[in-house]
Deep mutational scan, measured.
Amino acid sequence: MGSVRTNRYSIVSSEEDGMKLATMAVANGFGNGKSKVHTRQQCRSRFVKKDGHCNVQFINVGEKGQRYLADIFTTCVDIRWRWMLVIFCLAFVLSWLFFGCVFWLIALLHGDLDTDYKDDDDKSKVSKACVSEVNSFTAAFLFSIETQTTIGYGFRCVTDECPIAVFMVVFQSIVGCIIDAFIIGAVMAKMAKPKKRNETLVFSHNAVIAMRDGKLCLMWRVGNLRKSHLVEAHVRAQLLKSRITSEGEYIPLDQIDINVGFDSGIDRIFLVSPITIVHEIDEDSPLYDLSKQDIDNADFEIVVILEGMVEATAMTTQCRSSYLANEILWGHRYEPVLFEEKHYYKVDYSRFHKTYEVPNTPLCSARDLAEKKYILSNANSFCYENEVALTSKEEEEDSENGVPESTSTDSPPGIDLHNQASVPLEPRPLRRESEIGSRR
């Protein structure tokens, strides 16, 4: 089982795998120059863009038009607004034209077009017409509009002379109601789609790998820009990579689940303020055997998904993003964004995407760390350097704002901070800030 798991979770494809794949392509008759073999020097295209759209195009789909027309309502909801407006206008105009032609044909076959009612006051002739005051196609078209929109100006009306005319008036009224219901329903469904809710759900630009509770963890940050909550919010993550099976089958995008606390339930989050999602790199993680150097040379993509129900409509929305291997910062942490004021908490989104480097973060893999092949620094050293990194950030910001350097908390000259780390230190809580992250 261990060997199978290692093969499945191998992220960085070796040169031997690339040569094996190329040999397979030639042997199977696919070596026509169009096949692409992804190596370390040639990274694959992003499968999920940063804005959440999937970078996929469908080609050679059989009976595409028929399949889309069979699900016309979903098609109308998914198309762009400009095409929705075109369909909206065409549906009414074509129905008016169709029934206008029908009423014109009825008048033509009944002989109503030969009668001039402007110079004739004989009401008996008017009563013999199928539709009064309809003696041309324009008049028939206007009567069709008046019937379907129930305008009723009063000059044109159907008589009991022709039952077919009466039937067409009733039929057009029913068709008009159906068109109204369909168009209004599609427009309302399109307006109520929770897709735009994703514009106020954000992911951090970069993911980070750092120590948390004595273990290497992959972390990324999510935030909600609205005050309205995302009900039943939960997160998922998958690692996408290519691999070759033991039988020699090439899988271009193998999807591997990344555990973010599904078993323990901590994948469900209360997204009021930005939260750091934590994936513990343990023996079940696809990143277990990867060191910093392996991450730098790897070719994979981590897709992160945030799902929840919109509070206003109770409709489920899904926000997506992805991180390539070069977008994962090893040995970094996110800057705090949640600050405790006197009577409330304040979230500073200008710090949302910012990170700071944490010294002495192990550069080895989580496996080597678990097997004690890498000796961690003293816990006080880690905490102290973590505090120094934050303090230096604040000093830089104070210097930019014009604060005198004498007010900063610099260490005395001639003292090495790293050498001082081995000395037991008193706890130094942050002056006014605390970061709330997901705790395992």
Score class of each variant (00 low, 15 high):
27 A>L: 05
367 R>P: 00
383 C>T: 14
141 F>S: 04
353 H>C: 05
2 G>V: 06
229 H>R: 12
5 R>T: 15
93 V>M: 05
235 V>Y: 00
11 I>V: 14
300 F>W: 11
65 G>A: 15
136 S>R: 04
302 I>T: 02
354 K>N: 12
34 K>W: 05
163 P>W: 15
297 N>E: 13
298 A>N: 07
83 W>F: 04
401 N>D: 13
87 I>N: 15
8 R>Y: 08
431 R>P: 13
382 F>K: 02
199 E>I: 05
422 S>R: 07
125 K>W: 15
103 F>C: 03
389 A>N: 15
157 C>H: 12
242 S>R: 08
407 T>V: 08
281 I>A: 01
431 R>H: 14
313 T>E: 12
76 C>V: 10
207 A>Y: 00
331 G>C: 00
294 D>M: 06
206 N>D: 10
146 E>A: 04
223 G>Q: 09
8 R>G: 06
3 S>Y: 03
406 S>Q: 13
287 L>K: 01
156 R>Q: 03
190 K>G: 04
186 A>F: 06
100 G>P: 00
117 Y>Q: 01
301 E>K: 00
57 Q>L: 04
381 S>W: 05
3 S>T: 06
74 T>N: 12
214 G>I: 02
332 H>I: 01
273 S>E: 07
145 I>W: 10
298 A>E: 08
434 S>Y: 10
176 G>M: 01
290 L>S: 07
60 N>M: 06
336 P>T: 07
101 C>L: 15
14 S>F: 05
297 N>S: 14
153 Y>V: 03
112 D>N: 06
49 K>H: 04
383 C>P: 02
113 L>E: 01
400 E>Q: 10
236 R>I: 03
249 E>I: 07
303 V>G: 02
262 F>Q: 04
265 G>I: 13
237 A>W: 01
105 L>H: 02
326 N>D: 08
369 L>Q: 02
291 S>Q: 05
84 M>Q: 06
18 G>S: 08
153 Y>P: 04
321 S>H: 14
185 G>L: 12
32 N>V: 12
150 T>P: 03
416 D>R: 09
307 E>N: 11
271 L>I: 06
149 T>G: 09
20 K>A: 12
234 H>N: 13
59 I>R: 14
420 Q>E: 15
94 L>E: 01
287 L>N: 01
327 E>N: 01
139 A>N: 15
24 M>E: 15
263 D>C: 10
266 I>W: 14
321 S>Y: 15
292 K>S: 12
65 G>Q: 09
80 R>Y: 02
75 T>G: 07
326 N>M: 04
240 L>Y: 07
167 F>D: 02
430 L>H: 13
376 L>Q: 14
140 A>H: 01
265 G>M: 12
295 I>S: 00
384 Y>A: 06
56 V>F: 14
353 H>L: 02
316 T>H: 13
33 G>A: 12
31 G>C: 07
330 W>M: 00
47 F>A: 12
148 Q>S: 07
297 N>M: 09
31 G>I: 07
421 A>V: 11
94 L>Y: 02
380 N>T: 09
395 E>F: 10
42 Q>W: 05
364 C>Y: 03
265 G>Y: 07
102 V>D: 00
25 A>C: 09
362 P>G: 01
249 E>W: 05
297 N>R: 08
369 L>K: 02
55 N>F: 03
99 F>A: 01
114 D>E: 05
125 K>F: 15
190 K>M: 11
351 R>E: 15
100 G>Y: 01
401 N>V: 13
292 K>P: 14
414 G>Y: 04
272 V>G: 10
364 C>T: 04
306 L>A: 10
223 G>P: 00
184 I>P: 05
11 I>K: 04
409 T>N: 07
432 R>S: 15
239 L>H: 03
413 P>E: 14
61 V>P: 14
60 N>W: 06
114 D>M: 13
249 E>R: 09
3 S>N: 06
163 P>I: 10
341 E>K: 15
124 S>I: 15
376 L>R: 14
207 A>P: 11
200 T>L: 10
221 R>M: 02
48 V>L: 09
310 V>A: 05
17 D>T: 10
83 W>C: 03
214 G>S: 12
294 D>R: 09
332 H>D: 02
433 E>K: 12
76 C>D: 05
254 D>G: 07
221 R>T: 01
35 S>R: 11
425 L>Q: 14
156 R>S: 00
306 L>C: 04
282 D>G: 15
286 P>A: 03
114 D>K: 04
182 F>K: 10
73 F>R: 15
292 K>D: 00
117 Y>T: 00
374 Y>Q: 15
235 V>F: 07
433 E>R: 07
361 T>A: 11
273 S>M: 06
68 Y>W: 14
371 E>I: 05
408 S>M: 13
238 Q>A: 12
333 R>V: 14
194 P>H: 03
286 P>Y: 02
279 H>K: 00
171 F>I: 07
279 H>Y: 01
263 D>E: 09
413 P>T: 13
365 S>W: 01
160 D>F: 01
111 G>D: 07
16 E>Q: 08
256 I>P: 00
64 K>Q: 07
308 G>D: 04
128 K>R: 13
45 S>F: 07
91 A>P: 02
256 I>V: 07
137 F>E: 01
148 Q>I: 02
315 M>E: 12
45 S>T: 11
363 L>Y: 09
212 R>L: 09
366 A>P: 03
186 A>W: 11
178 I>P: 00
255 Q>Y: 08
320 R>S: 15
312 A>V: 03
160 D>A: 03
107 A>E: 03
252 P>H: 15
200 T>A: 13
244 I>W: 10
127 S>L: 15
363 L>H: 11
402 G>H: 09
6 T>A: 08
225 L>P: 04
54 C>W: 06
411 S>K: 10
109 L>G: 15
309 M>K: 10
282 D>W: 02
331 G>N: 01
384 Y>L: 15
